[in-house]
Write a protein that binds this DNA or RNA. Structure first.
Lengths: 151, 151
DNA sequence: GCTCAATCGGACATCTTTGTCCAGCTTAAA
DNA sequence: TTTAAGCTGGACAAAGATGTCCGATTGAGC
């Protein structure tokens, strides 16, 4: 239901959010999040243009979140790379409807709106903090030991 | 959020549902629903293979719903052409997680599940019958007069 | 049996998404 | 000032989604 690009963007910001006040190189993020390096580079550029992350060029540069994870909603990230489009008007282009959708498109748009809201009201900070009965963080193997990361 | 193919499939079954006990030719459906004739033909074949509609070949043939509109959910239609995929396991392929999703993917999957349910519990019959304060059916111009159709 | 309307299904064209490659620019640090 | 790490952006390749075309096949009605 969501594009690869969205999935990648979310993984990337989740990785940045763990230590958001310093820059992380694309290559490091790519290793961490197991996605194609060069494609991630494009995604990061998009996130940068959208103001979600900041690019620090030059040696020891990289990308870092523009704001604290608590201030960044999942919807911000999604809309930065692959905006969720509500159904504004009759897709059949029937004249004289304006915003009056038929029952079918009303249902579809309702579902889109619910999804939009679910992501609007979830911020990155929550995801990092969340703990539950079932272990919430994915462990990842790194140089022999297990550490918790945010996906 | 939904593919063109899904949109087309839904329009098509909505058109069939209005008079579901007789076959409708692809060309008629295409005119009615304003979509490309030949592409619709492919979509209808998919719906047929999935058991949503029945094909009647030969002269005076066409497609008709396999069941009454009340028995067909929007999810049936969607899954016939472009299945909604839940997130079953960690997309990063991290070992040792099984069904334990991290908070990010849990959120994503929750949203997908909600969407799935919204469509699972809406049937075509409801859409045709629904009347509300705002006019629920799209009027479509046909040979000079206005008639109501289900989109 | 013949004809014609209609589906069937393969081939192909086009566009978008995803993924790759690389030369050039920027900047920290030696 | 030189070097190397790292982003920038253009070009391009591969794959999938969408759209088009057309001959083959089916079956109702004459």
């Amino acid at each position: 239901m969501f594009s690869h690009t969205v999935e990648y963007a979310l993984r990337a910001v989740a990785a940045l959010a763990e230590d958001w006040e310093r820059p992380h190189a694309v290559q490091k993020i790519a290793e961490r999040t197991k996605m194609p390096n060069d494609y991630l580079a494009k995604v990061m550029q998009a996130l940068c243009r959208a103001g979600v992350v900041r690019a620090i060029r030059g040696r020891h540069g990289g990308y870092q979140l523009e704001q604290a994870p608590e201030k960044l909603s999942l919807l911000d990230v999604i809309n930065a790379v692959d905006p969720i489009k509500r159904i504004e008007r009759c897709p059949l282009g029937l004249s004289g409807h304006g915003a009056n959708l038929c029952p079918l498109h009303r249902r579809l748009d309702d579902a889109i709106r619910e999804t939009e809201n679910a992501f609007r009201y979830t911020n990155l900070g929550e995801l990092l903090q969340s703990t539950g009965p079932v272990r919430p963080l994915c462990p990842i193997e790194q140089t022999g030991s297990l550490i918790n990361v945010a996906f």
